[in-house]
């Protein structure tokens, strides 16, 4: 099967021909399989946001290609417009983009723009609301009367309602407390499972990406610096710190254990760490 997204030799230069000219993406290539959960990490200004906007055709590459299901999204106007819907993009602080009088109408904005009929729109709005845990009563209230966390879920539902095959989220948990974070991440995971959707998530929380993703793309200075499984990425602790990032605390603990002379694997989640320590202690422990 073809990869759902394939990016080859992608370059993007902002404000060509002005003193503000700036290369935001430098020869990026990677591909994404259906159902993958990918984390994108990198410091502010490393090109993450620009990259995201390339993947759904909001920005046109200066050179290089973005293939969606094997087709260049810029080869035909129709394909470009379709890319908007097939690759859903949730911006940072999406709650600031709500505008409708009711939650229902705000979620329906995307499906309406797709030109779907009333019945289909209704089905999608209700399903999307279900994915993010909004009750039918909440659909009728003004989005501006909801709490911050709820507003964000409405905004995410607005993108989910387009039923994108690829869902891209830019820091979906920024500013939320641990419970709010877990809720949003749970919603995303539910959608992925239900639709075998591909998820790409930009995050500054190394703990979150470590726990959830299958693969990490590390952006640094407009380039794709690493493309590997979390275990591998987080084994490059020093490089990551130099890039303005960090590694999960448990990974740091295990790097220290290695220094102490223990033969431990690279771990990056608490579950893995627990398993690894138990293995070292020799299986069954009775206290």
């Amino acid at each position: 099967m073809k990869p759902i997204l394939e990016v080859s030799n992608l370059n993007y230069i902002y404000s060509v021909g002005t003193p503000f000219e700036h290369k935001a993406l430098d020869n990026i290539s990677f591909s994404v399989e259906r159902g993958e959960f990918i984390g994108i990490i990198g410091h502010t200004g490393s090109g993450k946001s620009t990259l995201m906007q390339q993947l759904n055709g909001l920005l046109k590459p200066t050179s290089g290609q973005v293939l969606l299901d094997g087709e260049d999204i810029w080869s035909d106007k129709k394909l470009t417009r379709q890319a908007r819907f097939r690759v859903g993009l949730v911006f940072q602080y999406p709650e600031y983009q709500l505008f409708e009088e009711t939650v229902y109408r705000d979620i329906a904005f995307g499906p309406k723009n797709m030109g779907l009929n009333e019945q289909e729109i209704d089905r999608r709005v209700r399903e999307a609301a279900g994915f993010v845990g909004l009750t039918p009563e909440q659909l009728e209230v003004s989005p501006f009367d909801l709490s911050g966390g709820q507003k964000r879920r409405v905004a995410i539902a607005g993108v989910i309602a387009m039923e994108p095959e690829v869902l891209i989220l830019d820091e979906p948990t920024a500013g939320l407390d641990p419970v709010g974070r877990a809720e949003i991440l749970g919603n995303v995971e539910t959608y992925r499972r239900a639709r075998n959707a591909t998820i790409m998530m930009v995050s500054h929380s190394m703990e979150d990406v470590a726990r959830l993703t299958d693969r990490l793309l590390v952006m640094n200075g407009s380039k794709l610096a690493m493309d590997a499984a979390p275990a591998q990425v987080f084994s490059h602790a020093e490089e990551l710190v130099q890039m303005g990032l960090n590694i999960p605390q448990v990974t740091q603990v295990f790097l220290n254990l290695k220094k102490l002379g223990l033969d431990v694997a690279n771990v990056y989640t608490i579950e893995q760490a627990v398993a690894e320590i138990k293995r070292l202690r020799g299986g069954a422990v009775n206290a």
Partner: peptide
């Protein structure tokens, strides 16, 4: 700029 991009991402024209 940001709001425009976000609404375009939901198919606004």
């Amino acid at each position: 700029d940001k709001i425009m991009s976000a609404q375009k991402a939901r198919g606004a024209d």
